[in-house]
Amino acid sequence: MAYDEELADRVRDLVEGEPGLSEKRMFGGLAFLVNGNMAVSASSQGGLLLRIEPTRTESLVDGQHVRRFEMRGREMDGWLRVDVAVLGTDEELRRWVDHGLAYARTLPPK
């Protein structure tokens, strides 16, 4: 499945002008990186794949629309899947994108 191009365009509008921004195909989706570090991605599985401060994972997971990213059967702290159901408005999308941008800005450039 290809990523949601409309969602990618919405994210692109929000991150426009971010210093060090680039786009890259990753994990089957379209990722937005800050200084080479992934912040957020329009996921090939729908919704967003989001990179966050690992210690914030538990406080952001809701068990229904926001959950830990799972790789090879293992849930990963610091990575979230956010369903499109909670991204209906620009404000809702901005809330999640801002989490990813904030964390990516703290990482050393690649």
Rank of each mutant, 00 (worst) to 15 (best):
E5C: 02
G73C: 01
E70N: 09
H99F: 15
E70R: 12
A42T: 07
E70M: 06
W79E: 03
T55W: 00
K110Y: 10
L93R: 03
G73I: 00
M26Q: 15
D83N: 14
R67Y: 00
L14D: 01
Q64T: 15
A85T: 12
L33S: 03
D13W: 00
E70C: 04
S59G: 11
K24L: 08
G36F: 11
V97M: 06
M26P: 11
G46D: 01
E23H: 12
R95N: 10
D62I: 08
R25H: 14
E70T: 13
S41C: 15
E58P: 03
G46F: 01
V84K: 13
A104F: 09
R94I: 05
D77V: 01
V97W: 01
E91R: 14
R25D: 12
A8N: 04
L107W: 06
V34E: 04
M26R: 14
V34R: 07
R95G: 05
L7R: 05
Y103L: 05
E58C: 01
G47D: 02
A39M: 01
K110I: 03
D90K: 14
L60M: 06
Q64K: 15
R56Y: 00
S22F: 14
G29K: 07
G88E: 15
G63H: 10
L80D: 01
L93E: 02
M38I: 14
G20W: 10
A31P: 11
D9P: 08
G17F: 04
W96D: 01
H99L: 14
L93D: 02
A42H: 08
V66N: 05
L48K: 08
R95Q: 11
H99W: 13
V66G: 03
L14M: 04
R67L: 00
D13N: 09
P54S: 00
V34K: 05
D13K: 15
Q64N: 05
L50Y: 05
R72P: 00
M1C: 02
K24A: 14
L60D: 03
M71D: 02
F32N: 07
Q45R: 15
P108V: 10
M26G: 13
